[in-house]
């Protein structure tokens, strides 16, 4: 149960980052922290119940998470190459100006 509280603290830190940061890389780090907080519960309950299936789920979740991170980093690089910005507010301004 106590590890769930630790997981909640990490989740809160990730949400704080999502709400306050404008840099795309920082937002990606926030998402990674939230994913780590969520996947930590798999290992915690796997250890408590003595069931290795939780670790398997963690491995599946981490693989997909890493692949998604790669895609997002590719998109960040494209955004930077095209517009020279990594600020989400500036990117949303571009969307408005295109209208």
């Amino acid at each position: 149960m106590e590890y769930v509280i630790l997981s909640l603290v990490l989740l809160a830190i990730g949400i704080y980052g999502l709400m306050t940061k404008r840099n795309l890389l920082k937002i990606l780090i926030s998402i990674e922290i939230i994913a780590a907080a969520a996947s930590m519960n798999f290992v915690v309950f796997s250890s408590i119940l003595g069931d290795q299936l939780g670790q398997v789920f963690l491995i599946l979740a981490l693989s997909v998470d890493t692949a998604i991170t790669a895609v997002v980093i590719a998109l960040v690089l494209i955004a930077y190459r095209e517009y020279g910005i990594i600020d989400v507010w500036e990117l949303s301004k571009l969307k408005k100006s295109e209208r």
């Binding site: 780590a36 798999f42 290992v43 250890s47 963690l58 491995i59 981490l62 693989s63 890493t66």
Partner: peptide
């Protein structure tokens, strides 16, 4: 420390 060595190694390598 939670007795999950596979998860630990995978986390270390991948993440």
């Amino acid at each position: 420390l939670m007795n999950a060595p596979f998860a630990a190694i995978f986390q270390l390598i991948i993440a």
